[in-house]
Design a protein around this nucleic acid. Structure first.
Length: 858
RNA sequence: GCCCAAGUGGCGGAAUGGUAGACGCAGGGGAUUCAAAAUCCCCCGGUAGCAAUACCGUGUGGGUUCGAAUCCCACCUUGGGCACCA
């Protein structure tokens, strides 16, 4: 028996795995392949507990799959482009490239001690020219296939930073960093045609059986399919080039309640009219100036401008409706024009009341209650709850009772039959704008030529590399704007088509592009093409993908789109168009927050390591404890994995992040919990190394111990396969207790200890190897086949059956497992409590569930 | 506003129609020790009772069932996603 020294054990076994090449993934056909992937990290420079949790889960799966005879691919890389590197360069000089690669080295050094089963030979960073050069090749192929295009788009422009801001970077209409008033600018940008795939991306969700329902639902909502009617109102008096206004509606059954037409300020008709209507031009300009932030939209008043135009109602040509330009109508959804039905839409009702337009209900509740008032009589707009039946007042098919949905379907049918428009399906999903006016990203490989226009770069000129310096001088990132734009020479090039002097595109790609295909690149990370079809064909798909729920929509949707695009451009096989067979979204690691107040009563936060027993270690001042939240630097509620590994070892950190909560939920890191995890591992070490040298002879306790062993094998295996890591660990605790108390002979205890070591090996691989060796086993536990439970050992010969009387447990009997039902019933009725309860009467019914329970109904 | 999920001891949670609270943390008691650390043992949902035991108990109210934390309906609370989307 020896003391548990994690540092020693972990270094020793990591070296042994390395030397055995245990995690090198090599294509071979004698085993089924298994590709497990955790979402790759951004190289911030420090690993955090969230990484530890994420990679530990992946590691458990990878190691378990190795043990069950799979050929496992478990790679790691770096999502290395992005703003933080430029921000760091801006804040403290230096170069984004140096900063990023330095961070990668630091983080790799922090990750390696975790003992993850990663094939490090496949490592890459998305900022490696070898990677982004292939991404540029991919872009060119997509361009050729028509999957990428250029168009004008309105963006948030920060005039101080001279860059485009994402919506999330605009706060109260001002740039989040500069504080400058954000302008809406129209720029020519590159877009991926993801919206062409809307229907397919939506329908294919149904096939993703091993994805969380929640993620599929979020994607479905994001894609946003709606069924409606598209039709036109004809203008009473046409305008040059315009004689009708196309509208789209999901509520065609309200058409007979229409009272106005609304068009977007960006609608072609509005644009044309503002040319010779200064008032309208001013109104439109005002609308365009309005920000797009949620807060602004919330507050903004619904405003309209009467254009003076009139249209005819399609079902009654004598019925004329006014045309308003309205500030709440979006040009890029539907047709950019609506008809307003105030009776059944609160916003339209508010608008109608403001501009004194008629209100006409087309339907009302089938059974209006006392408190129901028609909107035309001053009530609210009536929108029926989904399944509710309504009575049509001005519908197309008389005053029928129908649910809203039936009403819509029959309205579409009626309109189609009468030549008024057609039923159409629309999607909320927009094309994906990928242009970013930033330096630290993948350059878009196109050239602008005065005579040829936009020309794709030649593939042999790839990669188009980012310049490291400018004119021999280091790039100054403190100057606002994109360094590529002001670089003295980088932009200059020859037109790939005509050879004349031309300029490079200076925009770089959205970093989401980088992460949309890295999983495919891992299958052949050094290939001279984006992928190697043979390798991709073997390793794809990712069998298990693990990451945070925050990527439920964008990253996962973009990746699904990219896999399709890569198939269409010949870079992935058909079977890989849904790249992730199974997805698991893990919860965060949280911690309590410790706070004191400064003299001005402002909160001051303290690191957990500076607090003990609710007091600051340094001064003894009491801290206020704020409930657990996601670990964040600003709240200082962070625990550094490196210091935990230093204090307790990687196995303890791994054991703890798996043990306390179900993996999809948040887990609270506590010092006591970590301490307890360590103590448990030390106890297992003590127990097993003690067993290794014991010599008690076989005895009557052997079978009971071995039964428990087989039950534990069964339960832990099930737990690992179903992501029930916390429950699996609970079983291992229980089995450890059983083993510690067992008086079985040395051989049985040895066998049980071997099983314990194997079952723990995915979670605490170093300790497991140490135990395996101490028990005299040959080879590595990581290479030993996973133990298989003997079904005949899972059930005891004698079972204790609870006896219920009217569903309440009143007694129990001990009977042979396979005892006849009628005999069980006889014994149950003979139980004292049952005899007493029956008091001589006959039971009304006796339910016997063999091996589980008996219920006597009186 | 629309859509979705979750509510179980002091805490994290287990049980997915069959003995509610496994396992862990915190807490209490004890053994060992000169003492401490470490370790080991016992108790630990509530109410009543010396106890055996009884009754209550999985957010609230109803329902289905021999039997419900689990299935159904309504409500409450919390969390998440989307949102001038026509």
């Amino acid at each position: 028996m020896s003391r548990y020294s994690a540092a020693e054990i972990e270094a020793k076994w990591q070296k042994a795995w390395d030397e055995a090449g245990l995690f090198r993934a090599i294509r071979k056909n004698d085993k089924p392949k298994y590709y497990v992937l955790e979402m790759f990290p951004y190289p911030s420079g420090r690993i955090h507990m969230g990484h530890v949790r994420n990679y530990t889960m992946g590691d458990v799966i990878a190691r378990y799959k190795i043990s069950t005879g799979h050929n496992v691919l478990h790679p790691m890389g770096w999502d290395a482009f992005g703003m933080p590197a430029e921000n760091a360069a801006m804040a403290s000089g230096g170069h984004p490239k140096d900063w990023t690669y330095g961070n990668i080295d630091d983080m790799r050094a922090q990750m390696k001690p975790l003992g993850l089963s990663i094939d490090w030979s496949r490592e890459f960073a998305t900022c490696d020219p070898e990677y982004y050069g292939q991404q540029q090749a991919l872009f060119l192929d997509m361009l050729e296939q028509g999957l990428v295009y250029r168009k004008n788009a309105v963006v948030n422009w920060d005039p101080v930073e001279m860059t485009v801001l994402a919506n999330e970077q605009v706060e109260n209409g001002r740039g989040w960093r500069s504080g400058a008033l954000v302008e809406r600018r129209e720029l020519t940008q590159w877009f991926f045609r993801i919206s062409d795939f809307a229907e397919e991306l939506l329908d294919a969700l149904d096939e993703l059986d091993d994805w969380p329902a929640k993620v599929k639902l979020m994607q479905a909502n994001w894609i946003g399919r709606s069924r409606g009617l598209q039709f036109a109102f004809s203008l009473v008096e046409g305008l040059e080039g315009h004689d009708r206004i196309e509208v789209y509606t999901t509520r065609p059954d309200t058409l007979m309640g229409a009272s106005f037409i609304g068009i977007s300020p960006d609608h072609p008709l509005a644009r044309q009219m503002e040319k010779d209507n200064a008032e309208l031009a001013a109104f439109n300009a005002e609308c365009r100036r309005m920000g797009t932030s949620e807060e602004e939209l919330e507050k903004a008043e619904k405003k309209g401008f009467d254009t003076g135009l009139r249209v005819r109602h399609p079902f009654d040509t004598s019925w004329e409706l006014p045309v308003y330009v309205a500030n709440f109508i979006l040009m890029d959804y539907g047709t950019g024009a609506i008809f307003g039905c105030p009776a059944h839409d609160q916003r339209d009702l508010d608008f109608a009341r403001k501009y004194d337009l008629p209100v006409m209900s087309t339907y009302a509740p089938a059974n209006p209650g006392d408190d129901f008032t028609l909107p035309e009589d001053g009530g609210d707009a009536y929108v029926p709850p989904k399944p509710e039946k309504v009575r049509y007042i001005k519908g197309f098919a008389g005053d029928e009772l129908q649910t809203g949905e039936q009403g819509i379907d029959s309205a579409i049918a009626f309109c189609e039959e009468n030549g008024v428009g057609q039923g159409v399906t629309k999607f909320r999903l927009r094309d994906w704008g990928l242009s970013r006016q930033r330096y630290w990203g993948c350059p878009i490989p196109v050239v602008h030529c005065e005579s040829c226009g936009v020309v794709p770069e030649k593939k042999e000129n790839l990669p188009i590399q980012l310049p490291y310096d400018e004119g021999g001088q280091p790039i100054d990132f403190s100057i606002p704007g994109n360094p590529l734009d002001r670089h003295p020479t980088w932009r200059d090039c020859a037109c790939p088509a005509c050879g004349a002097p031309a300029r490079r595109e200076t925009d770089t790609m959205d970093t989401f592009v980088d992460s949309s295909w890295y999983f495919a690149r891992f299958t052949a990370p050094r290939a001279q093409t984006p992928t190697d079809l043979e390798e991709a064909g073997y390793w794809m798909n990712v069998d298990q993908y693990i990451g945070g729920i925050e990527h439920a929509i964008l990253h996962l949707l973009y990746s699904r789109f990219f896999a399709r695009a890569m198939h269409l451009t010949g870079h992935l096989p058909q079977k890989a168009i849904e790249p992730f067979n199974a997805l698991f979204t893990q919860g965060m690691v949280t911690h309590e927050i410790y706070q004191t107040r400064d003299p001005k009563d402002r909160p001051v936060y303290h690191l957990p390591e500076d607090v003990a027993d609710g007091k600051l270690k340094a001064t003894g001042e009491a801290v206020e404890i704020i409930p657990s939240a996601k670990m964040s630097k600003s709240k200082k509620n962070v625990v550094d994995p490196v210091s935990i590994i230093g204090a307790y070892g990687a196995d303890t950190a791994r054991w703890f992040v798996l043990s306390d909560s179900p993996p999809e939920r948040d887990v609270e890191w506590t010092a006591a919990g970590a301490e307890a995890a360590f103590k448990h591992l030390a106890r297992v070490h003590r127990l097993v190394t003690g067993i290794a040298v014991s010599d008690e002879p076989a005895n009557d306790h052997d079978t009971a111990l071995l039964r428990e062993m087989h039950k534990t094998i069964h339960d832990v295996t099930g737990g690992v396969e179903s992501f029930g890591f916390n429950a699996a660990i609970a079983k291992l605790y229980a089995f450890t207790n059983t083993l510690a108390k067992s008086q079985a002979g040395a051989q049985a205890r040895q066998q049980a200890a071997c099983a314990l070591a194997q079952l723990m090996s995915p979670m605490t691989p170093h300790l497991a190897e140490e135990l395996w060796a101490a028990l005299g086993q040959q080879g590595l536990v990581g290479q030993a086949p996973w133990p298989v439970a003997d079904d005949s050992m899972l059930v005891d010969d004698t079972v204790t059956l609870p006896i219920q009387i009217n569903g309440k447990r009143r007694a129990e009997i001990s009977v042979p497992r396979d005892m006849d039902k009628s005999e069980v019933e006889k014994q149950a009725l003979a139980a004292d409590a049952v005899i007493k309860a029956l008091d001589g009467a006959q039971p009304r019914k006796v339910i016997v569930v063999p091996g589980r329970i008996v219920n006597v109904v009186i």
